[in-house]
């Protein structure tokens, strides 16, 4: 393995930061918008949907897809930065 111990620790810390940022968004769109604050958001109309209902049945799924892809790209960049890619 070409990478030093400190390097490995730094890589792991940045990795965790990326994971946490993504999970915050993941939580907000699904549990936040579609469950906890659904009543409040439902009073806002959105292309014919009550907004909270839209998040529960459509919006959160779109955001999930985007999240995985931004994660894939951030991690690919991170792997190259620390030279741990294959």
């Amino acid at each position: 393995m070409s990478i030093s111990n400190e390097q490995a620790q730094a890589y792991w810390r940045e990795n965790l930061r990326i994971i946490v940022t993504h999970l915050v968004v993941w939580f907000v769109v699904s549990y936040g918008c579609a469950i906890l604050f659904v009543e409040q958001l439902n009073s806002i109309p959105f292309f014919g949907f009550p907004l909270g209902f839209w998040f529960g049945q459509q919006g959160s799924i779109f955001v999930f897809v985007i999240l995985i892809w931004t994660y894939v790209f951030s991690m690919n960049k991170l792997d190259e930065k620390y030279d741990v890619h294959e």
Binding site: I19, I61, F64, L67, M75
Partner: peptide, 28 residues
């Protein structure tokens, strides 16, 4: 979903949101 309406959101989100967990926390 057709019969339970909004409550179906739990299944729609649950069965897709799990993939975010898979991608970020398990698969790699």
């Amino acid at each position: 979903v057709s019969f339970i309406g909004r409550d179906g959101s739990a299944y729609l989100m649950g069965w897709t949101g799990g993939y975010v967990l898979l991608a970020l926390l398990l698969a790699p």
